[in-house]
Design a protein around this nucleic acid. Structure first.
Length: 540
RNA sequence: GCGGGUAUAGCUUAGUGGUAAAGCCCUAGCCUUCCAAGCUAGUUAUGUGGGUUCGAUUCCCACUACCCGCUCCA
């Protein structure tokens, strides 16, 4: 992305964030206290928008399918579940950062990385050539070290203490080598990275540049919480909704009379202690997922992954995110999780970059396998046809709910230049939501507030529609302003009660209203009796 | 987590070591026969905590949050 484009998109994103706050879509959590990093609250309109998304997803993926059932699992999660799933080990890495080049290093990988690093291999080679036949360990040879530091070290590990300040470091090494005979190779590796041994103790070197690494810090990527009356038990806030689906697989299977292939769907909150929340609600510490685990026979996994990709793309189209703004990434071998045979990411062109909305992963029988092993309970499925037991495989379409809401807002946001009768140009801000997801479906206005007949009639129309859709009644300010207010929150239709409606201009126009469409700003006149059907037909 | 930037009303901005200004928005009233009209009145702000000072929104320090670039992203 060029700097100019980046700047333009940054301004666009600021406008979107500002609109979200101004109109009550999204607020920062605990704003009056200074805010809580990585957490956001949905205001009245945001709550409607998000509900519409979730309800449509549920309807399409659960209610309108006879092969998917729903689940609503607990957020608090037993430690053993996350132990089996691999989250407990995989989600709490110790990390070090290089003070010179800022690279992040997973501490458990450090020794391997050092062993394979160019400078460490070069140094080891130099020591071996100069001192052949010293199998017990590394012995310090000041001259060899100094020569290496001046030559190869300068290019391979410019930030290594030995290279930056050979005299001091070599003196430490010689001193230490007397006390440690034979010297442990790892201790030697630490020593060449240590400039102030007395002050700092031995430090670890960066595998890239030789610079000093910070002490390892533990990143708890899951939120831990106390549990039980005495508070001495440990539970976790789930980092994904999927695990309760796997853990309840057997119960659902036995109670729902489902047969392979079938899916279990769930919408709910998940929590990850993101190192760096960023980009408005995109990367939050508390977020909502819409997940399906679609269980199948092993031979169907790859085919179903492709089918789900298609189904999900259609879904995005139906809520107003066109395929042209989505990118499908087929995650290549080596970059997928080790248990996945196929993974697609569906990405959206956000103003801040192309970012993931949903992942569709063929996870084989990994999940049921680990929980079967962890719990000691069989999770096998008996196939009536073949009379055989099998451990089902699973395809997981996992969508980010908040991310999709953000994509809906970004996609809908538009600033349009309109020219009024006097030739004056002005900007019309419109959220072009699909009527299906729009938080308010219809605005109802009396043309004038100070005419009781108009107000009364408008209230009647409001009452007529309220049971079927979200209606916003507004009588304040000029009619044009009211239209624009609705444009800004993405209301697809506005109904205005005027003097025709109350029969002032003839019997044939009595009980008709104007209905104005958001995008075209065109109006047509229809009978109040047809209003409900007209609108329901267009908002589904 | 690192580096850089920002923080004044709901929004956009002004300004000052000594009473904080405007436009838009919003609210109420008047007016108004279809696209942000007009008039009147009104509410609302120096992110938090320290320090320097007689006095700090302004200068200094710390914290928090947000933005940008790295980094991370099961």
């Amino acid at each position: 992305m060029s700097a100019a484009v980046s700047e333009k998109n940054s301004v666009l994103m600021e406008k979107i964030v500002s609109l979200c706050k101004r109109r009550g879509f999204i607020f920062q959590s605990a704003e009056i206290y200074g805010g809580l990093n990585g957490c956001w609250d949905y205001g009245p309109l945001g709550a409607e928008l998000k509900r519409n998304l979730k309800e449509y997803w549920w309807r399409k993926n659960v209610q309108e399918r006879d092969d998917v059932v729903g689940l609503d699992g607990s957020i608090l999660t037993l430690e053993a579940v996350l132990k089996s799933s691999g989250h407990l080990d995989g989600f709490s890495d110790e990390m070090s950062t290089c003070k010179s080049c800022k690279r992040h290093i997973r501490f458990d990988q450090l020794r391997d990385l050092i062993a394979n690093s160019a400078w460490a291999q070069s140094l080891a080679e130099a020591m071996t050539v100069e001192k052949p036949g010293d199998p017990a360990g590394v012995s310090a040879d000041g001259e060899t070290l100094a020569r290496w530091a001046r030559k190869k070290g300068k290019t391979l590990a410019p930030n290594l203490a030995l290279v930056r300040n050979p005299e001091v470091v070599i003196s430490w090494i010689i001193e230490e080598s007397v006390r440690h005979q034979p010297m442990d190779p790892w201790y030697f590796t630490q020593l060449v990275a240590t400039e102030q041994l007395r002050q700092t103790g031995p430090v670890n070197p960066c595998p890239d540049c030789g610079g000093e690494l910070t002490a390892p810090r533990k990143f708890n990527l899951m939120f831990e919480t106390n549990f039980g009356a005495a508070g001495d038990g440990t539970a976790y806030l789930r980092p994904e909704t999927a695990q309760s689906i796997f853990v309840q697989f057997k119960n659902v299977l036995e109670t729902s009379r489902v047969k392979l292939p079938f899916g279990i769907a769930q919408i709910g909150k998940s929590f990850r202690n993101e190192i760096n929340p960023r980009n408005f609600t995109f990367r939050s510490r508390e977020f909502e997922q819409m997940e399906i685990e679609y269980f199948c026979k092993p031979e169907d996994g790859l085919r179903l992954t492709d089918e789900w990709l298609e189904a999900r793309l259609t879904f995005y189209e139906e809520i107003g995110i066109p395929r042209e703004h989505l990118h499908i990434v087929d995650i290549p071998d080596g970059e997928r999780a080790f248990y996945s045979q196929k993974t697609y990411d569906i990405e959206y062109e956000f103003p801040f970059g192309i970012q993931e909305l949903e992942g569709i992963a063929y996870r084989t029988d990994y999940d049921l396998g680990v929980h079967q092993k962890g719990s000691g309970k069989s999770l096998e499925y008996f196939d009536e046809e073949s009379k055989e037991k099998l451990l089902p495989h699973v395809v997981e379409p996992s969508a980010g709910c908040d991310r999709t809401v953000l994509a809906l807002i970004c996609e809908a946001f538009d600033e349009e230049t309109v020219t009024d009768e006097k030739g004056k140009e002005e900007v019309r801000t419109v959220l072009r939501f699909s009527p299906r997801v729009a938080p308010v479906k219809v605005g109802v206005f009396p043309l004038l507030k100070n005419k009781p007949e108009l107000v009364a009639k408008a209230r009647e129309v409001q009452k007529l529609l309220t049971p079927f859709m979200t209606v916003f009644y507004d009588e304040a300010a000029a009619i044009g302003r009211r239209y624009r207010r609705q444009d800004e929150i993405g209301t697809p239709f506005c109904v205005t009660i005027d003097f025709d409606t109350i029969g002032e201009n003839g019997e044939e126009l009595k009980d008709t209203v104007t209905i104005r469409e958001r995008d075209s700003m065109k109006q047509e006149r229809i009978a109040i009796s047809e209003l409900r059907a007209f609108l329901l037909d267009r908002i589904q």
